[in-house]
Simulated assay, not measured.
Amino acid sequence: MSATDATTPAIEAVTALGLDHEVTRHGRVNSLEEAAAARGIEPRDLVKTIVVRRAEEDYVFVLVPGDREFSWPKLRALLGVSRLSMPDAATARQVTGYERGTITPFGSTHAWPVIADAAVVGRRISMGGGAHGVGITVDADAALAALGAQVADVTE
């Protein structure tokens, strides 16, 4: 099996959950816009997974549409905390099993809570597939249900 055909923990997890999905493989990209174009979708349908540190050894995944930025104040208010941070690349890999740019809640080494921005609901989205140049396209509502995601307005 070549690297372009290899599976990832994310692909295996989505398959095991029985989610209808499509895997897209493309070369490395330099921007979200390039990734969206390579997957044949609009940037708003490419959902970024951001790892946010709540406290020591306590993280959450935040799912954000590609055309939006998450709001620190909204996320802090939702979580009822006064302080949040983003882990460095090495810590993000340690707590998810994925490198930055490939992170997804699917197949992560730890099932951290998932918060999805309300703008994700009701769409077909593409998420990181657990390796550079790999995307997984799924029905957002089915994916959010499978992840037990909390849906809230957390973006600007």
Rank of each mutant, 00 (worst) to 15 (best):
G97N: 07
E57S: 13
V47F: 04
A119K: 07
T15H: 14
R44A: 15
F61K: 03
I115F: 15
L46G: 07
A92S: 01
A6H: 11
A140Y: 00
A10M: 04
G40Y: 06
L84G: 00
L84N: 00
G97Q: 11
T109Y: 04
E56M: 14
V120Y: 02
L75T: 09
G107V: 02
V29A: 03
L32V: 15
A13D: 06
T8F: 14
A111M: 06
D67I: 08
P73R: 10
R54N: 13
T7K: 10
V60W: 13
V114E: 09
L32Q: 15
G107I: 00
G66S: 07
I50N: 11
E22G: 11
Q94G: 10
R25D: 04
T96S: 11
A90F: 12
D67Y: 10
E99Y: 10
E12I: 05
L78M: 06
A35H: 02
V81Q: 04
G66N: 04
A55L: 09
A38F: 01
L78R: 01
A152D: 09
E12C: 05
K74M: 07
G130I: 06
F70R: 04
E42A: 15
A35N: 05
N30M: 03
A118E: 11
A13W: 03
G133E: 02
D139F: 14
R100T: 12
D58K: 14
V95F: 12
A10G: 04
I41Y: 00
A131S: 13
